[in-house]
Design a protein around this nucleic acid. Structure first.
Lengths: 137, 137
DNA sequence: GCAAAACTTGACGTTTACGTAAACTGTAAA
DNA sequence: TTTACAGTTTACGTAAACGTCAAGTTTTGC
């Protein structure tokens, strides 16, 4: 129930301790401290870090992620604030769904190239060593 | 059949001309030139740019994208080269599929936050104006 | 209880991905 | 042809996201 140290978390999530501290500087996480002032990470803190990393992998900037998280941390007593957060979250969800579609497009782009390469490979294999330059498109 | 100018492409793809020239500097595109040395972009060039932009949205660095594109440009006459490209492409496909899964996780993270916010909102609404500070979890 | 390992806060350095300005050239319209 | 706009290269500037010391503090293992 003690929680993890910063280097344990760094190992676990495969990021540097500097990165973790940097995210804290930016206000993305607020781990507790020991009496000796060392950072302690709960599972919840780790989940938050995972979310950040995940967001980053999709090209979201830390500022954007901060907003997403700001959403999570919004003072839960201000109705106005909650509604703003909900709107922001919904926009992000829409964006995420669009990216899913684009990811499929990217996948198809690569599959198309792959198909061409495979066809060309088969040609080369059945054709023996004759060096015919196929058309370029 | 003349192709587009750099600013036309910039408008079309919603990026700056600087960005387009920068991608060229990095070797990601090679548009033809007019007799007056101005860049001319074919639909194929544009498709390439779209692929770059798409890749960027998934957190791929320009260097990584350059590698992907290198795959597409591999000399189709060298069997060895083709096989290398295929392996590279397959690796990228695997990566893309992993990202798809993660994207779903990110979506779920945000949905979870959303649910909490909605619950809290309903509490506030039914509860009238009493300012009770709920527990923080 | 003491050295070694891990942690702390600065603070400056580096890379990526462009922005921006300068100084010049090509192109289109009146 | 001149004028104005679009394009070209070169080069310095910058914001984001960390990397990398340095110098001191805390924790841990013997």
């Amino acid at each position: 129930m003690t929680g993890s140290s910063i280097s344990q978390v760094a190992d676990e999530l495969d990021i540097s301790t500097r990165t973790i501290r940097f995210y804290e500087e930016k206000g993305l996480i607020q781990p507790r401290r020991t009496t000796g002032n060392q950072r302690v990470y709960t599972p919840r803190n780790k989940a938050r870090l995972k979310l950040i990393i995940r967001g980053k992998r999709f090209g979201f900037s830390l500022d954007e992620i901060a907003e997403m998280i700001g959403m999570a941390d919004a003072d839960p007593n201000e109705l106005e604030q909650i509604e703003k957060s909900l709107r922001y979250g919904d926009a992000k969800l829409k964006e995420i769904r669009e990216r899913k579609k684009e990811l499929t497009l990217l996948e198809q782009d690569i599959l198309a190239v792959r198909d061409k390469l495979i066809k060309r490979k088969m040609e080369l294999e059945t054709m023996g060593t004759s060096t015919t330059k196929g058309e370029n498109e």
